[in-house]
């Protein structure tokens, strides 16, 4: 066959392939939107999950081993420092025991309703293992080893003992995807623990947590703890989000903005807890809550309670 004919044949073959594969990709997207892809996704994730779990386990072991090797030299110094710290903490524990007793008495006396739901949540947490992470750089999700058969539903909050992680965004029979708080699509109504100022914490493309819509005027401090406020009904009240790392305040701006250092180490998530007895009451997807400086549709402002903290 002559070279020019062969090239022409290859070129037309490439064109046919591109058209067919593009149509197949569009078909997959259409099936996903209509929900018809779920059975196939269930099947594939069930098949892949064990391999993914093993790979995650091996990765964690290897990472821990190298981290340990790197730390051997500093371990002795750390040991001495920890001994001193332990003595200091023992003294603090004694003080805290006294505070706890006092706190219990006050709680019983005042019947402080807002502290009770948190205690009730404790019995409804399911511990899940993280078996995979987002494959692209454009979103922040993790895959956990619990799904619909374990009672997991879309919207359920996910936490660790350190604080708020995110919420369930997609559920198959035995697995679920968690949209992390650091994803640009994520947002949570927040409250500053000491100054009691409200705002919205949202993720960003730079993996930073940004607290937006903080009213201009009142002051707050670096290091102040940021908690979920419970407004909007997306997350329970009182979950730790992080601490204020820096404050960006402009004289003419309507709101103040702050960078929040997350309480959760998103880079080393292994076990998470899903709060199953919390019913999220959300109307709009999170990404409609746009960051300050960008246009927000009036409809979004009206429907979403979180857009107007």
């Amino acid at each position: 066959m002559r070279s020019t004919e062969r090239r022409a044949r290859n070129f037309s073959d490439l064109g046919v392939r591109i058209v067919l594969l593009t149509l197949a990709a569009i078909l997959l997207m259409t099936l996903q939107i209509s929900g018809n892809l779920r059975p196939a996704q269930n099947l594939i994730t069930q098949l892949v999950a064990p391999a993914q779990l093993s790979a995650t386990g091996i990765t964690s072991s290897v990472t821990r081993f190298f981290a340990f090797l790197g730390r051997i030299r500093t371990l002795e110094q750390e040991y001495v420092a920890l001994e001193a710290r332990a003595k200091q903490l023992e003294a603090e524990i004694e003080t805290l025991r006294e505070v706890e007793k006092e706190n219990e008495q006050l709680r019983a006396l005042l019947n402080f309703a807002q502290t009770r739901p948190r205690l009730e949540l404790r019995g409804a947490q399911i511990v899940a293992r993280v078996i995979g992470e987002e494959s692209t750089n454009f979103s922040d999700t993790i895959l956990i080893d619990l799904g619909a058969v374990h009672g997991i539903r879309v919207g359920m909050p996910v936490v660790t003992d350190q604080g708020l992680v995110g919420r369930i965004s997609e559920v198959t029979e035995n697995n679920a995807k968690v949209l992390l708080l650091t994803d640009p699509s994520s947002s949570a109504s927040a409250l500053l623990a000491e100054s009691r100022l409200n705002g919205i914490v949202r993720g960003s493309t730079g993996n930073k947590l940004i607290m937006d819509f903080i009213p201009q005027g009142p002051t707050f401090n670096l290091g102040e703890t940021v908690l979920s406020s419970g407004l909007g009904g997306k997350f329970p009240k009182g979950l730790t989000i992080g601490v204020i790392e820096s404050i960006e305040s402009q004289p003419n701006a309507v709101f103040q903005t702050a960078i929040v250092r997350s309480a959760v180490d998103f880079g080393s998530l292994e076990l998470v807890m899903v709060i199953t007895n919390f019913e999220p009451s959300e109307v709009l997807p999170e990404f409609l809550l746009q960051p300050a400086g960008e246009e927000t549709t009036p409809e979004a402002q009206e429907i979403s309670p979180e857009a107007t903290p």
Partner: peptide
């Protein structure tokens, strides 16, 4: 890729 992604199925293929 899309099996382990939060994005739309087929987007990574395209």
């Amino acid at each position: 890729m899309d099996l382990f992604s939060g994005g739309p199925f087929g987007a990574s293929s395209l």
